[in-house]
Structure formats: structure tokens, C-alpha cells
Design a protein around this nucleic acid. Sequence first.
DNA 1: TGCTTAATGAGAATTATTCTCAATAGTACC
DNA 2: GGTACTATTGAGAATAATTCTCATTAAGCA
Lengths: 133, 133
Amino acid sequence: MTPPRHAVLDALSERGEHLTAEEVFKKASRRCPNIGLATVYRTLELLTGLGLVSKFDTGDDKARYEFADPAGEKGHHHHLVCSGCGKIVDYKDFIGEEMELLRKAEQGLSKKYGFKIKSHIIQFFGLCPACRR
Amino acid sequence: MTPPRHAVLDALSERGEHLTAEEVFKKASRRCPNIGLATVYRTLELLTGLGLVSKFDTGDDKARYEFADPAGEKGHHHHLVCSGCGKIVDYKDFIGEEMELLRKAEQGLSKKYGFKIKSHIIQFFGLCPACRR
DNA sequence: TGCTTAATGAGAATTATTCTCAATAGTACC
DNA sequence: GGTACTATTGAGAATAATTCTCATTAAGCA
């Protein structure tokens, strides 16, 4: 755990953040002023591989990263994305039902297609109140 | 409907295809030998806007396009993606249940967050039989 | 203290996609 | 039939996120 890595992890530690690599870079630069962007990418990849961070994409062409709440069901959430302004809302409202569906789907798909399911994405897109009209 | 546009639409007309822009370009070039890549992109954007084609992304950094089956429930499917080889399987197996969940979620999220939901993504990632070991 | 190995920063390289712009084609109207 | 107007096209340049290269540095270790 080197200083640059610590700085990256730290930049992501606030919950509810959905930062691009560039934003992580800016935040991490505060703690580690001469960190390089390449290191940020490398570290994000590393942390993602370890399961500490999750990477996702909302349709613009920038990957976004968030701290992965490891507490299973507890912190599990999905994203609701505004196509107008890019706002991202974390929601947990249907997680129970979603989990149920996902479990069934994973089991069914495994059996039928022989896949070993590793992960899934569920995302809703729409217009937020401000962008609505 | 110009010849290049026809060529693009034609390239996508086979069901079950999930082509990148480059692949569409290659196929379309057969019918329209001097079509340009920019035109392919422009046309894909146009068709996507019209709802005739849908654009999605499996995690490599290329957008993929498929003919959008307009027949509502009938042709609706989601994707199961192999993280190993990139293979994409269309499945419809849980569409009924998914639709149910989605309807509830859309309604609930609309009410709670004030979003007007326009679309959603559900995707599973895993390893196909060949990549499994 | 010297040695091996992993990590770093800077900038170049890559790559999908978008933009620019001059040339063209199709259409309406005289 | 011919001419102005508009949308579309192709080619290549431009853009932008991400990855790669490589020389330098730092860290563990005997």
C-alpha cells in the first residue's frame, strides 16, 4: 500500500460518489500532489480486480468508479441515470425483488447456457425532475 | 432512404447479430462499396434515434448495434456476455419476470425520484462453457 | 550497504468515435 | 429543361479516454 494507492482509495472513500478517472485524479492529487494519471488508472484497475472498487458506465464515454460496499445485500444498489444531465441516483428500493430475480436467472442461465455467471448490470435511464420538461 | 442508409440497415438485418460499427461498415461496404465509416456512424445514430436499432455495450470499448425487434414483448431479450471470449447470447428466458420487476421498478422509481424512465439495461456477465476452465 | 523487484510519473501511442468541409445529389420551383 | 436550395456523403483530420513505454525511484532483503 503505497502513498499513491492510498490517495486513490481515499478519493473514492466517500459513499455515493461516482467519479471518473479524471476526478479521482484531481482528488487524489490533493493528498499526493505529483501522482500521475497513469497511476490512477493502474490503481483503479487493481482495486477493481480486488473487488474493492466497482467500475461502471453510464453512457457517456467515461468509466466511473465507486467504492464497492462489500457488505453483500446491505450496500447493494443499482443506478438510475438521467440522460439529460448525467445525474446518478443510487437506489436500493427493489433490491430484494431484484436479488430474487437475479438468483433465479443466474441459476437458469447457468443451466441452460452453461455459463458461470460472475456479475450483472441493472440500470435505468430517464429524465430527472429538472430535465424533465 | 439513400443507398448508404439502406446498406447499413441491410447489414444489421440478420437477427441475433451484434455488430460493431466497424463490422457494420465492412458488411455495408459489400452493397455500397464506397460508403464511408462516418456515414455508418451517422446512420447508426439516426436509426438508433428512430428506435429501429439499439445500441449497447458489452464492456470492451466498442459500441454494438442490433436490429431492434419492434414487436414489444415478442422479440425482447437481454444479453449474457462471456468475459473470456466476448461471446454474446441473447436470452429470453426470464423476460416475463423481468418485465414484471421492471414495470414495478419503473413505477416506483418514477414516484420516488421523479424520474421519467425511458429505458433500462439488464446484462449478465460470466464465463461460457469454452472459457470456463 | 549493495541487489532485486515492483511501482511510479511523464508523455507518447492507441483507438473508437466525432467533426470539418468540400463535393455531390436530389428536389422544388421557375 | 434549367437553376438555386438543402440534405447527404466520403475522406481525412481532430478528439478524448485509456493504455503503453521506459527511464527513474523506492522498498524489501540478505
